[in-house]
């Protein structure tokens, strides 16, 4: 076990190193570093001073070292637009993104699981077929277009829900959250549903397949023979057993939600990290772009590490295989 953890940690460190190299070369070698890191509104003397301050007159390996030590001490440059440290800006926006991702995760279980179990229990009924056809659509529909349609139907035509922003927020442990106020909740509903759409389809498919497998197991037959009510069989015996794959897959999908929130946040003007990235790209606010990329890469490496470690705890075959290889 410890061998596996050490190997996996080393691998993550290598990936962090390679990614920092890629981001560094992306900014400093592919593009013009002066062009990328210096505010175009500066005077000539200021530009030369900044070049010296950033060490752009030194050789490349020294520059990389400089960049790496700065990044490790949390200094990723200042935003041109906001004049604040890029790292601070991103960390400020992180709770909004995480809130959106968590609510959409909950939503995909709350909507997907009942539909999937129903379709699994009555595989031939017309309702089930509609559910399954809908789940195919959920995979095929481009998320951003569905977002636009949701805004048009629920915000413009029906006027039921607001289409932009976060609404009223409440401070909980120093972090502002939307889901505790009614107004915030109404702002959260559309973007969270939009982000959840693919995962709802995924949960429907997983729980339908799981249910169809489980209902033929002996323990379900036994529970039925014992005279348990069908409600109890479904909610206790079936549901419990199909939750394992559902929870595993959703855990894996969490990273994808963070990545896809870039799209949803842009459509619904949700003030999270993803919208900050798109705004920064449009405003050529390069320090923020670099900082976002580094943070999101780090975030993913940590998620992947956690997923692998959890797997190795749950399934001994994973770590045995890896040690042998």
């Amino acid at each position: 076990m410890s061998v596996f953890i050490i190997r996996r940690l080393l691998q993550s460190l290598v990936v962090v190193f390679v990614m920092s190299l890629l981001v560094f070369f992306g900014v400093n070698v592919v593009g013009d570093p002066v062009d990328m890191l210096i505010n175009p509104e500066m005077s000539q003397a200021d530009i030369e001073a900044t070049i010296r301050a950033l060490g752009l007159d030194r050789p490349v390996h020294e520059q990389y070292w400089h960049f790496l030590t700065n990044a490790l001490s949390g200094d990723l440059g200042k935003s041109f637009i906001f004049g604040e440290p890029a790292l601070k800006l991103i960390l400020q926006r992180m709770p909004a993104t995480l809130e959106l991702a968590f609510v959409s995760l909950l939503m995909s279980v709350a909507i997907g699981l009942p539909l999937g179990v129903y379709a699994g229990l009555n595989p031939e009924s017309r309702v089930s077929r509609t559910i399954m056809a809908g789940s195919i659509l959920g995979f095929s529909l481009p998320t951003f277009w569905v977002g636009l349609m949701l805004i048009m139907i629920f915000a413009v035509v029906l006027g039921w829900l607001p289409s932009t922003g976060r609404g009223d927020t409440v401070q909980v442990l120093g972090i502002s959250v939307s889901f505790l106020t009614l107004n915030g909740l109404s702002h959260l509903l559309l973007p969270a549903f939009n982000l959840a759409l693919t995962n709802i389809s995924l949960v429907i498919r997983l729980s339908r397949a799981g249910t169809r497998e489980v209902v033929h197991q002996d323990y379900v037959k036994f529970a039925r023979a014992k005279g348990l009510s069908s409600n109890r069989i479904v909610f206790v015996h079936v549901m419990k057993n199909i939750m394992i794959p559902v929870v595993t897959v959703l855990g894996l999908e969490f990273g994808g939600l963070i990545a896809f929130s870039v799209v949803t946040e842009t459509i619904f003007a949700w003030p999270g990290m993803g919208k900050l990235l798109i705004d920064s790209v449009q405003n050529l606010d390069r320090p923020v772009i670099v900082a976002y990329l580094l943070i999101i890469v780090l975030f993913f490496i940590v998620i992947n590490l956690l997923v692998d470690l959890t797997y190795s705890l749950l399934d001994p075959r994973v770590r045995l295989q890896d040690v042998k290889a």
């Binding site: 593009g31 994808g256 990545a259 870039v262 790209v281 772009i289 990329l293 999101i296 890469v297 993913f300």
Partner: peptide
């Protein structure tokens, strides 16, 4: 995720 890799590349 694919979209993240593409975003990183196109931002650069």
């Amino acid at each position: 995720p694919a979209i993240l890799v593409a975003l990183i590349l196109l931002a650069a």
